[in-house]
């Protein structure tokens, strides 16, 4: 949880794994890496057991590139597929109980602010649609209403992937799943609308089709959460297992969903926009409120 903590004490160097030494020497620390540089530096995530070709895996990978200061970040997650990769990062990962992610993150962020008043520490919640829109729903909403300063990222695969295909609040109406054989009866929840109602200052809906944009949105969301208030990213991260998407077609699927009903949307409050402009004048200009 700081560059000093990451570095290996010389006496222990020979006992550390190659992977860890590579990370300290050739990792992304100290300088914001670009998506176009992927493959030329050691990334924060190690090997993990998420399924082949999973869009959620790709989204998590890109998220780690976007983090402005991974060495000063804590991840909070819960049961669900994403934690399989999140727990293999060199970032402290708190495995919250299913349902309490945003309560844990609230306390954690407040504690960190007290303990490290001089050094911003970023808290990022990353969990599934089941974790955030169903079981964790009340803690998510309350953290937004209380204006807790951390980022919530929903890995929305529109199903409970990890437990074999139950419908979630974020599943589309009519979707037939293994454990929703008659098709879901109710509409997909409007989490973006709820975030707006709670006056969340930065809200984004996106997919994995544009890797640079994923990293840039994550960066903005984390920076805004430091100074202004809660931020929310809702990302379509298909489950190729439960929706039977052939893996070579995963990106095509994201593209077609993007065109159909999951277009890129970015809402930013005036205060958040002014803040971004004050720290990165050029970049913030590109941030227009867009409705797709």
């Amino acid at each position: 949880m700081s560059m000093d903590n990451l570095k290996i004490s010389p006496a222990l160097e020979k006992y550390m794994t190659k992977e860890y030494r590579d990370l300290v020497e050739r990792g992304p620390y100290g300088k914001q890496k670009k998506v176009s540089e992927m493959g030329t530096f050691k990334e924060i995530i190690e090997e993990h057991p998420m399924c082949a070709g999973c869009a959620m895996t790709l989204f998590i990978r890109l998220t780690m590139i976007g983090l402005p200061n991974p060495e000063h970040t804590i991840l909070v997650g819960t049961a669900g597929c994403g934690r399989l990769a999140l727990s293999q990062t060199s970032i402290p990962f708190i495995y919250g109980n299913y349902g309490d992610t945003n309560a844990v993150a609230s306390g954690l962020k407040r504690g960190l602010e007290m303990r490290f008043p001089e050094q911003p520490k970023d808290v990022v919640v990353m969990a599934g649609d089941g974790g955030l829109a169903d079981i964790g729903f009340s803690t998510v909403l309350h953290s937004w209403f209380r204006k807790e300063k951390f980022t919530t990222i929903m890995l929305d695969n529109e199903v409970y992937g990890n437990t074999g295909g139950q419908e979630s609040g974020m599943t589309q109406r009519g979707a037939i799943l293994k454990m929703a054989p008659k098709g879901k009866k109710y509409e997909k929840m409007d989490m973006l609308g709820l975030a707006k109602t709670a006056n969340v200052p930065y809200i984004v809906r996106m997919t994995v089709t544009n890797p640079t944009r994923v990293a840039s949105v994550v960066r903005k969301a984390v920076l805004i959460a430091r100074e202004i208030g809660p931020t929310f990213i809702q990302a379509y991260t298909s489950c190729n297992i439960e929706y039977a998407i052939p893996t070579p077609k995963v990106i095509d699927d994201a593209k077609s969903l993007e065109a159909e009903r999951y277009g890129f949307q970015e809402f930013i409050s005036d205060e958040a926009k002014a803040f971004l402009e004050s720290i990165e004048p050029k970049k913030a200009k590109a941030t227009k409120s867009t409705e797709a």
């Binding site: 998506v35 176009s36 992927m38 493959g39 030329t40 050691k42 990334e43 924060i44 995530i45 190690e46 090997e47 998420m50 082949a52 070709g53 999973c54 869009a55 895996t57 790709l58 990978r61 890109l62 780690m64 890797p211 640079t212 990106i251």
Partner: peptide
């Protein structure tokens, strides 16, 4: 073009030799 390096879901799997 460095496109595959950005879309492989796995970390440090498609590498790029500058």
């Amino acid at each position: 073009c460095k496109l595959c390096t950005q879309f492989c879901p796995e970390t440090n799997t498609i590498l790029y030799d500058n």
